[in-house]
Amino acid sequence: MAGHKTSEQNVNVGNYLRLVLAAALVLAVLAVVHIRTRTEVPEGCIRIENGEEAVLLRLADLPAETVRGTVVNGKGEQKEIEALGLPLLDVLILAGVGEFAEVDVIAEDEYHAVVTAEEAFREGTAYILLEDGAARLRIFGDPDSKRNVAGVERIVVR
């Protein structure tokens, strides 16, 4: 109806814009803090952190071979895959890691999964696969598909 405004129509753009600007400012501060404090890893590399020590490994230099295994997706469906990769344990040995209880495998977007020493030592289980120049953690046969970490950048040893 002409000339009649409902409460929804009476939009005060000023208040909304102030809200957007305030949120954008907070977001910008959070983004700057995060980007400045995060550990930068050069492209095509994986960083293994063991206490104070950190070792950078070039993915291209890793002795990758064709590996096969069964992965389980979020729907519980099993699928056989074949890819280029190497056991997680071999990556840790290459970085000079000795004893450990567990490792935290962290992606570039900070998504991460914990792999226990038992799983790392179990043959045919925990692998770092190389896909399109990036590393991916695969735990073969693991029903928890959340531990499939793409774009692995760092491995923190505990």
């Binding site: 949120a23 959070l30 803090v33 995060h34 900070e110 991460h112």
Partner: peptide, 22 residues
């Protein structure tokens, strides 16, 4: 799922809030 560290979680929630506002 994510269990993000605090600084990353703050940015993640901030991004969600900002998108929600827009």
């Amino acid at each position: 799922v994510f269990h993000l560290p605090k600084a990353v979680l703050a940015l993640y929630l901030g991004t969600a809030a900002f998108t929600g506002i827009i």
